Every structure is written in C-alpha cells, then in structure tokens.
Computed example of a mutant assay.
Amino acid sequence: MELYRKWGWTEDDFLLAFRKNPQIMELAEKNFSSKMDFLVNKMGWHPADVAGSSVALNYSLEKYIIPRCLVIRVLLSKGLRKFSDSFNTSGHAVHDGLRAVKNTVEDVAVALVISLESDKFKENIKKVTSMGVPPSSATFMRALYMFARVNESERVQKMELYRKWGWTEDDFLLAFRKNPQIMELAEKNFSSKMDFLVTKVGWLPADVAGSPIVIVFSLRNWIIPRCSVIRILMSKGLIVKGEFSMATLLGTGKDYFLDRFVVKYQEQVPELPSIFKVQMGLSEPGLGFEQKEVGVKQL
C-alpha cells in the first residue's frame, strides 16, 4: 500500500484497480514503478486514470505500452477523432486507448512507425496525404505502414508492374487509397491474380483497381471458385453481365455469397455447391474462362 500511495493512489483508487485487475498485486515494485513513471510523469496522466484501467499495467512497458502511447500521441496530434474520442490527452480510458491501437494497427506496423526517425515519419505522412489519403481516413495508418515497409526502389518496381498490367497512375492511386495493402503483394502473387481476372475472366484493369480488395484474396480458394459459379450462372441466363459489381462478387463474405449465388440457384444448377467448394484449376473444362486479348493502357 505504501508503494501505491507513493504513486498517488488513494485507498479508493487501489480498491478500484484491484477489483478490475487483482494481478496488480503480483507486480514487483520496480515493474509497477517504471510503468507508473511513464504513464504519470511522462504521459501526464492522473494516477486515478491508471487505477481505472489497471489491466494496462499487465502489459510490457517496452513492447506494448510505450509504442502504443507514442502512436496515440502522434494520432492525436494529427487530429484523428477516431482515437481522441476514446483516448484523450488527460488519459481517460487508458486501456481502451491501448486496445484501440492494438485492434487497428498491426503490431509490426506500430514498431515500424515508432522506429522511424521523426523527419522520415513526417516525410511519409506528406507522401501519403499527397496521394489522397487524409489522416482522417480509415486507411491512413495502413498507407503509412506501407511506406515504412516498402522503400523507394521497391515502389518504382511495383509501379512498373502495375503499368504492365494496364493500370494508369490514376488507377493505382484509386486502388492504393482503397486498399494500401496492394503494395505488399509480391510480383508473382499480383500477376497471377491480374492474369486470371483480366486475361481469362475479361475484366478491365481499371475494374480491378476500383475494387482492389479482391486481389488480396486467395486465387485458388476464393477468386476462382466464385468466378466459376458466376460464369455458370451467366451461361445459363440466371444472372446477366453487369448485374453485380466486382466488389459484390468477390468482396462479400462467404455466407452472403453462398446464399445469394449458390443456394438461391441450387435447384436450377445442382452442381453449384460442389463447384464452389472444389479448388478448381484455371483451365477446368466447361467454365468458359477462355483466353482474352485485352488492350493495355500505359501510364
């Protein structure tokens, strides 16, 4: 109790902290003090705030608390309401704030962002915002993460790859704003999906750019089975071309797709469930994925 008093906890603060997290009693004095020193003296939070979110004290100071607190500080300085609503500068909802960052930004992203030198960090923020991704965007942190992971020479190589598959610069910017993760895809991964969607299915490169979430899915286990189902439904006149967007066909959840395109037409096409489940090859007979000549636009 003397230790808790030293760090500003009243008896009521201790009882609140203990009810929420009895494990605080197991923390060694040095462990407890180092975390309170950071949260109270360096972050400026009130001891009572920490008591109210005492589970935060269970986490590693170096690996969890400090990186996330620094990310939160950066986010708040950029006016990101998403975080400031649940984690304000006076330290209310300490654990909620830490958890919000954990659920929104990959652990490795936190480490990378924090490890960047301040000038480099600011430079990347400018680059991301210049590409049309404002700090208030839900994809802003992921875009920043991509710039931390992919260096300039790699970005140049990736732009050449996108040009090869018919994306204009506007196409790329649209795709990046919607799904920055496209820059993580290896050349072979990206090319195999574009080859199937553009060359074999016949979609325009710009269509894929408009729904870039589809190219992060597995080609064999997700994209091909769905396209197989859709092609058969179209061949039988049960749905028509252009009736559904690419996002609906490939970006919706499995249950929705099953209900909307498999179960609904199972009586007319009994083989649909097996087609959807089987991992099918690109040239499976009868699917209609013929080779198509597609005009490719250059940047």
Rank of each mutant, 00 (worst) to 15 (best):
A93P: 00
W45A: 05
G44F: 08
A93I: 01
S118Y: 12
L75R: 01
V110K: 00
L75Q: 06
A48D: 13
E106A: 12
S84Q: 02
G132P: 09
N31P: 00
E11N: 11
S53H: 06
D12N: 14
S54V: 03
Y59S: 11
Y59G: 07
L70I: 09
L76F: 00
E117S: 01
V108K: 07
E26C: 00
P22L: 03
K78G: 08
G91A: 11
V40R: 05
D119T: 09
M131F: 13
A28T: 11
A51I: 05
I24N: 09
D12C: 04
V74Y: 07
K122S: 12
F121S: 01
G44R: 07
L75S: 09
F121Y: 09
K122M: 07
S34A: 10
C69Y: 03
P47K: 10
S54Y: 05
P67G: 13
T129P: 12
I24P: 11
I24T: 10
N103I: 08
V113K: 01
T10M: 07
M131D: 09
G97R: 05
I72L: 13
N124W: 05
Y59V: 04
R19H: 12
A56R: 08
S53I: 07
V71L: 15
N88C: 06
N21S: 12
V55I: 15
F32W: 05
N103E: 15
V94Y: 08
L76M: 00
A48K: 15
C69I: 02
G97N: 04
L27T: 00
G132Q: 06
E11F: 02
R81S: 08
K82V: 02
R73Q: 13
V133T: 12
T104I: 08
V101F: 07
C69R: 04
V50T: 09
S115I: 01
M43D: 01
E26T: 09
R81H: 03
R19D: 13
S130W: 03
S34Y: 03
G91M: 10
D49L: 03
F18N: 00
P67T: 13
V40Q: 04
H92E: 15
A56I: 14
N58Q: 15
I65G: 01
Q23L: 14
K102V: 06
V101W: 07
V94C: 13
N31M: 02
P134D: 12
S86M: 04
N124F: 14
F14Y: 15
K120C: 03
S130F: 03
N88M: 04
V40Y: 02
L75T: 02
M43R: 15
K126N: 13
L15Q: 07
D37S: 08
K78Y: 14
E26Y: 04
K20C: 09
F14D: 03
V50A: 10
V128G: 06
K63S: 11
G79A: 05
W45E: 04
S115V: 01
Q23G: 08
D107Y: 09
K35A: 11
K120G: 06
